[in-house]
Amino acid sequence: MMDVCVLGPMEICSSGRADRVCLAPKPRTVLALLCGHPGQMISVACLVREVWGEEPPASSLRNMHTYVLQVRKLLACLCGVSTRAVSQELLVTHPGGYSLSEAALGFDHRTFTELTGAGRGRLRDGELLAGIGDLLQALRIWRGPAFADVVTGPVLEAQRRQLHDARIGAMEALSEARISAGQFHEVISDLSSFVAENPLHEGLHFHYMRALALSGGRARALEVFSRLRLNLVSELGIEPGASMQQLQRCILNSTDPAMASGL
């Protein structure tokens, strides 16, 4: 099966080989929108709005037909089949729109969602190490921000943010599980870049501070709190939440950080 990957720069993977999507920006957006909603019919009107916004050119319908043809030619080249076969089995025309087959193609964002769900389920069932394994596998799928090389319109931008939030949620669940398993240094390694990329996210900072304190890095943990507070106050005009402040007090008072309530 061929996989279409959007969790990072767009790639199409087959037989262990990854090919970058060599399309101009507009047909790339068309492919990305179809990939984001496999098996669903995406209307031509939706595709036009995604590519041109609310003021499309008079030639938009003709141009959209050309972009879909370019996407089909790319898929045909990578799959080693005819453009006709692609139009019949992969990128199918419907009255008023198009759909990308979810039976013939794999999608990395769906694999991520499935693995994350499986990992959370195993954690709820008390299978700590198995749940950690699933979440690690899910997060390793990411190669960068979702749709990293795509010009996004309103639909893709909403999905990009949703996927970003799901990635953060998976990392929070993984961090909490790894702390429970005593894997403090692994959590620190996992979160060092995440907190830098998300300087206002209290949940990530909470787990980062706990892992640092539990591994003996109380001073570093307090520095993380101070930096978070500075960012929140300067950018949003708010103080860290009650859970963050409770964790700070636990660290200052040499109380077990594991006793602090989560976010």
Rank of each mutant, 00 (worst) to 15 (best):
S193H: 03
A118C: 15
N231A: 03
L135N: 11
A138W: 02
L105W: 08
F184N: 11
L100E: 03
I42W: 03
A118V: 08
G182R: 01
L91E: 04
N253L: 15
Q70T: 04
D190I: 05
A170H: 06
H207S: 00
F225V: 10
G106D: 10
V30W: 00
R122M: 10
D165S: 09
R218K: 05
E197Y: 13
S87M: 08
L47A: 12
L33V: 02
A103T: 13
F206Q: 08
L78E: 12
F107K: 01
M41K: 13
G237L: 10
A146T: 05
E223K: 00
G39K: 08
E186H: 13
R62P: 01
A104W: 08
V92S: 03
Q248M: 12
R249H: 13
L212R: 08
G121L: 07
E114Y: 11
D190E: 01
G203H: 14
A45G: 07
Q70H: 03
L100T: 02
S15N: 14
L100W: 04
S192H: 12
A170N: 06
R161S: 09
F112V: 13
I12R: 02
V151N: 10
R143H: 15
G131R: 07
T255M: 15
L135V: 15
V92A: 02
C35W: 00
S234Y: 03
H205S: 04
H65R: 14
I168T: 15
A170V: 01
L139Y: 08
P9A: 14
L222C: 10
L74T: 04
Q70K: 04
G217Y: 03
V195A: 02
V71W: 00
C250W: 06
A242K: 15
V151A: 12
N63R: 05
Y67L: 00
D125K: 12
W142N: 13
G126I: 09
L33F: 04
L247F: 09
I168P: 06
L228K: 07
L212D: 03
L115D: 05
P27D: 00
D19R: 15
S189Y: 06
R72V: 02
R20H: 15
R72F: 01
Y67H: 00
R120S: 03
A103V: 12
P257Q: 09
M259D: 11
S192G: 02
S59M: 14
H201P: 00
M244T: 11
M259V: 12
